[in-house]
Write a protein that binds this DNA or RNA. Structure first.
Lengths: 184, 184, 184, 184
DNA sequence: AATGAATGAGGCTTCATTCAT
DNA sequence: AATGAATGAAGCCTCATTCAT
């Protein structure tokens, strides 16, 4: 039954996000999923497996959107939209993001899921393309690092209001502060 | 005897850094410290306690240096030296830094040790002071976030050679790439 | 399987009776029950829980019989039968009784299991009823205390042969010695 | 220094009385005695030793008084005074008494300290003597058991006000209830 | 006489996982 | 497809006790 499998994944995500990989327990997950503990094992074989599946599930679901920009966009608008889009995503999924970074640093994520790479390469690629299209000769890699850093900062450093809870104007002002420094 | 206590702290740091708080085992620490497991408990009472003590020990030891700059320094040099100094520290202690960020995100660090705050506030303060001295009217907070982000990126994102292993010229080039974007 | 649970309870009773609550070990109980130690915990959650369950099990099993007497019984026969019945029970379960009193005094029994209350209230009630039926105006409470005391004495004070091992005639003689003092 | 030894005994008694032999801990005793834990061992060698010494100390101190009666006393007065005296002692030292009975039943007291024997033989002897002096031909042993039982009841069964807190008249009334049943 | 330091042994409990139905 | 029953391994922590000063 697809049903039980879904319940398990949903429950496992919620538990893993709250407690992290090691501190989470198959018992708690099973309980939350309204399923016998064995059922986890029948379906996923291993706690580690379930974890990896859950993480893949999350990343596919929340962080895999392709970044797209109009070709004729100005560089300033490009960075603005890039930041806005990513901050929105991170801000909305802050707990998940924190867990992923934490587990990534702890070495509990499989190589191909290294979340930080994902976030960074996504961004890096977009910037590279923009620079290529616009024939800019700035160092796109360093830009990528700066943007990536800003995003990490939002996930990790102490913050005020969540980005996604700001209103449109506040968001623009917020983004602009970065743009003023980075773009020209 | 100060001796055993030191052995324990050294061992505990090494184990905690390698495996993180939860996955570390008092048994392994004791073994590595050449000490009976009980001795940990006589001296620190609790695994958590030992962990916190170890972390405090590390941060005091490696991350508490006060950042100092000459008053007449140019803004560009200021940021350059700030980045150089912090990257050096982070790069030299990369494993420790990763563990600290990971545990911080996992909520296993006591409030007053939230490592990321420490790193960030240190930097933030230095920037604020420089802006004040130089009577610059830029937004020091956003600058702080950008610098903080760069540092986080270095701890978290995939990197090439460790910063502290670069030679002097490479370091300067590396820093300059950031400065070109950030300063003017 | 009811089987294992029963084995556990049987084993736990035997160990608890022999060593008392604190000195007993879940390991020993598990061993005696031919069960893995974890199984105790799956079934009872806690050593304390297992203990309380075992005690409840014992008291229900051995000490909960209702005392019944014919309405037209003489007071002397009443006390005789009462003593006989209770001495029989106590004597047959002397180890259990000792453990229960000991744990009761040590404060390791839950309120509703305070064994001594149970034994005493049982007796007290029977006496009250007899006095009521016979319209005797003696002080049933003091009688209760005396009878209760005699029973406690048998559990605690040094004794000769176990009451239940006496033959019928010896029992009668034994009981009569008390009756001669108490009943007129 | 007699001083430390005394502190230790005082502390050990208080702890043993509160928690019983097994649940008491040399650490707690040392703490309460303001003494290093080793000092206990230097002076008493063993926890068990300390316990036994403490118990002997208590019994010598509180329960060893010889019972004395005037030769010409009436049997009723004799039992009255006997009960009064013993109830007073037990009531005043109820916690100690409970612990001693409990440990006695648990088999943690050395043979020669079996508290219940002590209490009982004391009483038994007095009764025997009285019967001898008065040339009574009642069964002094059964009387001893009844009196012993009454005393045990007071230590173990649920009670109202402590005997030693009653006023003189209440005490007399209380004792008389027993005498009315037992004597004549 | 007194103690700080150290420890072997063991206790209760939890965890991920397998077995049998 | 699902689960109740069972477990080996291991974790944190505590206890009575010895050693060295």
């Amino acid at each position: 039954m697809k049903d039980k499998t879904d319940q398990i994944i949903k429950a496992s995500i919620s538990v893993f996000v709250k407690k992290g990989y090691i501190a989470s327990t198959t018992k708690e997950i099973a309980l939350k999923a309204n399923v016998a503990e064995v059922t986890l094992y029948r379906k996923f074989g291993t706690k580690k497996n379930l974890f990896e599946f859950s993480v893949k599930s999350i990343t596919d679901d929340k962080f895999s959107s392709v970044l797209e920009f109009k070709e004729e966009i100005s560089t300033s608008d490009f960075f603005g939209q890039l930041l806005d889009n990513r901050l929105q995503v991170i801000s909305k999924n802050i707990s998940v993001v924190k867990m992923l970074i934490s587990e990534s640093l702890a070495g509990n994520l499989p190589k191909d899921l290294k979340f930080t790479h994902v976030i960074f390469e996504n961004v890096s690629l977009a910037i590279k393309q923009h620079f290529s299209i616009k024939k800019l000769n700035g160092d796109y890699q360093t830009y990528s690092k700066i943007i990536g850093g800003i995003l990490l900062g939002h996930a990790i450093l102490p913050n005020g209001k969540s980005y996604h809870k700001l209103n449109q104007q506040e968001k623009e002002e917020y983004i602009n502060k970065y743009l003023e420094i980075i773009v020209k």
